[in-house]
Design a binder for these strands. Structure first.
Length: 560
RNA sequence: UGGGUCGUCGUCUAGGGGUAGGACAAGGGACUUUGAAUCCCUGAACGAAGGUUCGAUUCCUUCCGACCCAACCA
């Protein structure tokens, strides 16, 4: 975590490097990742986490704080605090002892507010919520001063103390900064600093009947911690003057620099906590960690690795452009990582029974098969073959098209790692459905190569009926079938863009016996079908696999 | 009709007064006991118009387009 050799370059890191070089902030570098614990982290947060935590590579001894922006108890919960910590850690980032909560600063913030009142820079406003909104004006019309704007310092102090003491009802008073009701930046039109909320806070309980608002709390929390570079997303650009105002007029000396970058957008994906919450609450998904969710916990359960996510975040870069990243890039990142890391195994998703007629019942042949085609360190395992096997339904076609190289009547194909078989007969039920294939094998082709050197193009996967383990497999696909789920013809809700086929459960899969030692969360490549992991949350001892991503399939692509 | 920000291949992103680079996607080929992986090749971009300049995608001006802002959310 030192030399900036492998540190990616972007405009934020350029600013930081310049500041470091010029000796700004006494050469200190401190960033922070400031989530509000009101939902689960998603891949957009992962981008922010990478930007903030990886900034540490720019300077020996640099620090990145994990700070919870928990100033709105109505929306927040410890469940979210816990999941956020777990997700940040899982992504591979260690905040050491630097974990903080804005709620830890409530007392200090309260004193800062009193100081602003004393300096005549803040006042208690007693207008109704409607009047506050109305008097704020709009984009083209300046606001008008509140009738309470010129209350005396003494009265303001008294009122504010009584707000804090819990004497007033919600909505009766707020504390506002006295800046400029005519500012073209609406944020500067006497922004609210405190509102009365008699809500129990997940950390401070009922100690506070008033809670600070983001603009007041955030910048000052940064200043208190000694943050040097406060990195956030573009929508806060308009807040920067306010951020600076609070720190300049109140802060403990240190003036952090707010820098904004564009938040992540992904095709076929929504990344707003509000809408993700809608999916959860409307039960369109199984929860925040549903494998179809773009949450860190969902991706993890789906089988995405931390490395694939951080690599992805590095690839997309950091800029101020409002862009939409092709979800295919994320998919590429996980294929790339799993290609290197996942052992290969044989698993049949939609089994078709095959009887090898010239192999006696009870006879078992064992083949040694490598777990990885390119990396010997993965080792080998034994796969058993016997008279009855199962192959993938898709790997047999009664009337195959020209370039189909799998099994068909009269054709020969290789069973991966094992031998060659030829299809002699197709057995159908009364409905005409193919229920079984009768084949013969070439005992001279042990391992898969024929003794006479004849060419066999097709290789398919299979399992031995007597040895296979029954399994359930969840096939996941994109949650939405529209590239931009949020752009809709009038009246159509984004929920109407859900992909009805985003999940398909296969209950009669068969996997090779070596999988008996698989542990929850383990990643595998089921040869020729995709990458899967043993569901980390599945019941103990059950074989439930989640499909992380399919293999690239140029054959299917050409066919369509 | 206000304020803020942004326009580079289909997508994301470098670069920067002198041949516009990379990744993903796409197309083609080689290899292959995964129609995977790997390797090779190909096509593909500076929003527009003026100005400055020997030369502008880069600097200037204007225009056009996109996004954000009027929660007691963050």
């Amino acid at each position: 975590m030192s030399s900036s050799e492998e540190t990616p370059s972007n405009f934020i890191y350029d600013i930081i490097r310049d500041d470091l070089k010029s000796g700004k902030n006494d050469g200190r570098l401190m960033t922070r990742f400031p989530p509000e614990p009101n939902g689960y982290l998603h891949i957009g947060h992962a981008k922010s986490i990478c930007v903030n935590f990886n900034a540490r590579t720019l300077k020996e001894g640099a620090i990145c704080n994990l700070r919870f922006d928990d100033t709105n108890p109505a929306a927040e919960d410890v469940e979210y605090v816990d999941s956020i910590k777990e997700d940040v850690r899982w992504l591979g980032f260690d905040w050491g002892g630097n974990i903080f909560f804005a709620s830890d600063y409530f007392e200090t913030l309260y004193q800062f507010a009193q100081r602003l009142i004393q300096d005549g820079k803040a006042y208690v406003d007693s207008q109704s919520i409607e009047d506050i909104r109305k008097n704020r004006g709009d984009f083209y019309k300046p606001g008008v001063n509140s009738a309470y704007r010129d209350r005396s310092v003494e009265e303001n102090l008294d009122l504010f103390q009584r707000m804090r003491a819990g004497e007033f009802d919600e909505g009766s008073h707020v504390l506002r900064a006295k800046i400029d009701m005519a500012s073209p930046d609406l944020n500067l039109r006497d922004p609210l600093m405190y509102r009365i909320r008699k809500t129990t806070h997940h950390r401070t309980g009922d100690a506070w009947p008033i809670y600070p608002i983001y603009d007041f709390a955030h910048g000052l929390s940064d200043a208190i911690e000694g943050i040097t570079h406060s990195i956030c997303t573009l929508e806060f650009q308009d807040h920067r003057p306010l951020y600076n105002w609070f720190v300049e007029n109140t802060g403990p000396g240190n003036q952090p620099q707010q820098i904004e970058f564009a938040r992540l957008n992904l095709t076929y994906t929504i990344l707003s906590k509000r809408n993700l919450q809608k999916l959860v609450e409307s039960k369109r998904v199984g929860g925040w960690d549903d494998p179809r969710m773009p949450t860190v916990s969902g991706l993890r359960r789906r089988g995405y690795t931390a490395a694939s996510i951080t690599n992805f975040c590095e690839r997309i870069g950091v800029t101020k452009r409002d862009t939409v990243v092709d979800v295919g890039l994320l998919e590429h990142s996980i294929r790339e990582d799993l290609n290197a890391k996942a052992p290969r195994v044989l698993a049949v998703l939609r089994p078709l029974r095959v009887v090898i007629e010239n192999m006696p019942e009870g006879e078992v042949h064992e083949f040694e098969a490598p777990y990885h085609p390119k990396d010997e360190s993965f080792g080998n395992r034994i796969v058993p073959l016997s008279r009855v096997i199962y192959i993938e339904r898709d790997d047999f076609l009664e009337d195959p098209p020209g370039k189909f190289k799998r099994l068909a009547p009269g054709r020969e194909v290789r069973l991966r790692y094992a031998c060659l078989i030829t299809c002699n007969e197709v057995v159908k039920d009364d409905a005409g459905e193919i229920i079984e294939l009768r084949c013969t094998w070439d005992p001279e082709s042990l391992g898969g190569m024929p003794a006479d050197g004849r060419k066999v193009k097709g290789t398919i996967h299979w399992v031995s009926a007597a040895h296979a383990i029954p399994a359930r497999v969840n096939l996941y696909d994109r949650l939405f079938n529209k590239e931009n789920p949020m752009s809709n013809p009038d009246g159509v809700d984004f929920l109407d863009n859900l992909n009805p086929d985003s999940m398909e459960t296969l209950n009669e899969c068969l996997v090779e016996p070596s999988l008996s030692s698989a542990k929850p969360g383990d990643h595998f490549q089921f040869e020729r079908t995709g990458y899967f992991n043993l569901d980390p949350l599945a019941a103990k001892g059950s074989y439930q696999f989640n499909r992380t991503i399919t293999l690239r399939d140029t054959w299917a692509k050409k066919g369509s």
